[in-house]
Design a protein around this nucleic acid. Structure first.
Lengths: 350, 350
DNA sequence: AGTCTGGTGGCAATCGATTGCCACAGATGG
DNA sequence: CCATCTGTGGCAATCGATTGCCACCAGACT
């Protein structure tokens, strides 16, 4: 039935036989990290034999003996969120260059699936994990600080800081957004964001509040609403509620670009124009938000670099570097586009 | 230096010892595909022992013995192309449900990287490959029809048809687009698309030509230009050249949505409005093109379903099903939005 | 009573690469 | 001239799970 050809390729014994040496010698000759362990003439004979046979070492056998799998797991909340694509690309490219393979797991934003994904990746003996799904408290993730493969978080961190985190400097970006809006003349801001159990949420919300308070003069007020997720639908719900409850608000700082998209929907539904009636700032500068109408003003994060740095930190740990649980912060930048403008002359009313 | 804890988990011998049986018996007791091979009381003792110890079989050891890795490679051209995200999601979810892990490889649209990615995935003993990067002729991919892991292509097929392909019915979608434009009154169409060495390109180009010819009356002419890729920049270049060389064209059928985005740029640069001056149809209905200004009329393909079906076909092959090299075609649908409209009253001139 | 059968479980080989230890040869030094 | 050292290569154990084969036992059947 099942074609059982299996066509096993050549093994190290075949190589050794062809080169006229013992398998162990062949193994050492092929191991680049043992220079000089095998005499050069012998080594090149072995290499030639390996090449002639098209020898490729069996990863299972190697892994069984060395206890290393050459695999890293990448856990992400939702691949269709465009902000993740460049991050994953950066991770994948960096890890591949270092000889690691990337096992992908999409959790669909479900903590239960996150936990099972981590278990599964661990069962597959991944040497490291890059996790972009962490909630502020998460038993499944926190355990990795003590037991299991080396782990690095991206974007979303733990409250305990028990694991290294590579994230963007949201606070700075959000503060720039608030100052930008204040300078345009807005006095009533809203911050619509995601669930409280994500570190990004609280970081950004705190930054909005504090940067508003720090304005000179401090005459800008902020209302903050939390949704249950970072999706367009969440943004729509939040904005709908906000616009009817707080007609004085003339500018919205969205927790991310997806929420901002939802805000645009809600504004359109309420007959409000952006930016003439309400200004809007997103977060992440995910691909294509510069092509919306209006083009979204947003806080740009170094997406690809986040992925690259996260992978680098992980590689450092795997190489046995200090086990510091560093929290790496990469710079952000406010990108002003068409969705922000001065408030309407007469602050709009209900 | 490197913390060498390695903290090996319990092995099947530990489980066997705790249950008071031989390791082989423990192995069989834990193998769900051997019902009845071990007496129930014994089996449940083994299961209890395994559970108590938190036993997880070592994939390397198992793989070494069984010659199966439980891994599938997924080769994609560019993760930041939003059309791929749902496809990869579908693949990943389906494979995971079947117990396979997904090794991701992004080739950045580079055939050389595709070849090395395939080699690498093969070296890792992937049991199957899902390939979304295939060119019409590709030694690296064609070889898989004879040797190497089972492979399934998505979206992009081989001329030889030597490997199964899961693709959308582009021809039907494109034909609908052409009829839609003709019905709006357009008589001069252009098709701007990607390189000729991709099957999607030729499928779509042929469909544009043939469906125009099949119109009644056949009074619509079509000019077809090929670019070097399926990117926004390619679309921009193509559209720029087209608009100056063919001022009579009032509607563009783009090879995909990325090219369509480039067309929008070029139109804006040339002072042309869409759809008032030039209508535009994209292809793929990738996420967010419904939110552009104008919202893009495009041919929707069942993105997620493509991924799911591709994974299913692969699973079928892995299960030893008939080795038919079926070419699976999933339905498409023209989604009419704001980027198509009747041509300007006086066909525009140079 | 003897043999057969089916149900269980144990034994040991096996998958393929790696590596600790040993052996041998030639070189060096006392 | 012998002892030691260094460079090179072989031997065999090892990683952990799986599985073909065999052995044993109880019950059934002739």
């Amino acid at each position: 039935m099942a074609k059982n050809a299996a066509a096993r390729g050549p093994t190290i014994r075949d190589v050794a036989a062809l080169a006229g040496v013992h398998p162990s010698t062949a193994s050492r000759a092929l191991d680049a990290s043992l220079p000089g362990r095998v005499a050069e003439p012998t080594a090149s004979r072995v290499r030639a034999a390996a090449h002639a046979l098209g020898y490729v070492p069996d990863p299972a056998a190697r892994s069984l003996r060395t206890r290393r799998s050459g695999l890293v797991g990448v856990v992400i909340p939702d691949l269709t969120n465009p902000v993740l694509a460049p991050i994953v690309q950066g991770v994948e490219e960096t890890l591949r260059a270092a000889g690691f393979g990337c096992l992908l797991a999409d959790t669909d934003n479900d903590p239960a699936r996150e936990a099972s994904a981590i278990d599964e990746l661990e069962a597959r003996r991944c040497e490291g994990l890059v996790i972009a799904t962490a909630r502020r408290r998460s038993a499944a993730v926190e355990r990795l600080a003590k037991r299991g493969p080396a782990a690095v978080l991206v974007t979303r961190g733990l409250d305990t800081g028990a694991l290294p985190l590579v994230a963007a400097d949201d606070a700075q970006g959000v503060a720039a957004a608030v100052r930008h809006l204040a300078a345009l003349g807005h006095r009533h801001l809203a911050h619509l964001t995601g669930p409280r159990d994500l570190s990004t949420t609280v970081r950004r919300a705190r930054a909005v509040r504090e940067s508003a308070k720090a304005l000179e003069p401090p005459d800008v007020d902020v209302v903050v609403h939390h949704g249950s997720g970072f999706t367009i639908a969440d943004g729509r719900r939040l904005a709908r509620a906000l616009l009817s409850a707080h007609p004085e608000v003339t500018a919205i700082v969205a927790g991310n670009d997806m929420i901002a998209l939802g805000c645009l929907d809600a504004m359109a539904g309420a007959g409000l124009r952006c930016p003439e009636d309400v200004s809007l700032v997103g977060h992440n500068d995910m691909p294509f938000v510069d092509r919306l109408e209006p083009a979204l003003t947003t806080v740009a994060i170094p997406q690809r670099a986040l992925g690259v740095r996260a992978a680098e930190v992980l590689l450092g740990r795997l190489a046995g570097e200090a086990v510091a649980t560093e929290q790496l912060v990469l710079p952000t930048q406010l990108v002003v586009r068409g969705s922000t403008a001065p408030p309407p002359p007469a602050a709009r009313r209900s």
